[in-house]
């Protein structure tokens, strides 16, 4: 745990950048392009729920839900979540069908730093929908000695 240090006094916490392994907004855009190709993405129908203040980036509860009747004729086929600053841009990709009845997925993710999160849903008509959220991550105080 040398990465982050507890410094009272200056109230500063040093974050050493992860260097070349870091995802970037460009890497995220590229990962999104791999999923949507040239299709348009409409910012609608998707809700991305994250706590307003993240107390520890190691475990951040997240729920993605999509407005959809979830019928055989009209349902959400896939939900993807991406991030900008973790080492890799992909967080998860899930496949759904009318058998799910409701297009909502909850999980917990790691966020190394404050950043933008994007969720993209693909509906059965081949269209893409999205939502994004800017999250602020607090770094923990009182950490371990180097392990």
């Amino acid at each position: 745990m040398d990465r982050r240090r507890f410094l009272v006094g200056t109230a500063a916490i040093v974050v050493v950048p992860l260097g070349s392994a870091s995802a970037t907004p460009e890497a995220m855009a590229e990962a999104i392009r791999k999923v949507v190709g040239d299709s348009a993405v409409t910012e609608s129908r998707v809700t991305l729920d994250l706590p307003p203040l993240i107390e520890n980036g190691n475990t951040v509860p997240l729920v993605v839900s999509v407005e959809s009747p979830m019928t055989v004729a009209d349902h959400v086929k896939a939900i993807h979540v991406f991030n900008e600053k973790n080492p890799q841009p992909n967080v998860f990709s899930a496949r759904l069908s009318a058998r799910n009845g409701r297009a909502a997925i909850g999980t917990r993710i790691k966020l190394g730093d404050s950043q933008k999160i994007v969720a993209i849903a693909e509906t059965s008509d081949g269209r893409f929908w999205s939502a994004s959220a800017d999250v602020i991550v607090t770094l923990a105080a009182c950490l371990e000695e180097s392990t």
């Binding site: 190691n58 998860f92 899930a94 058998r99 009845g101």
Partner: peptide, 29 residues
């Protein structure tokens, strides 16, 4: 799977937190 038929599939990445938690829905057919 529900009685053998796949109903949900999720590909994870290193960005999923330790001791992974997943919630999803299914129609009780």
């Amino acid at each position: 799977t529900w009685n053998g038929t796949e109903i949900f599939d999720m590909e994870m990445s290193p960005a999923i937190a330790a001791n992974p938690f997943v919630s999803f829905f299914a129609v009780a057919s």
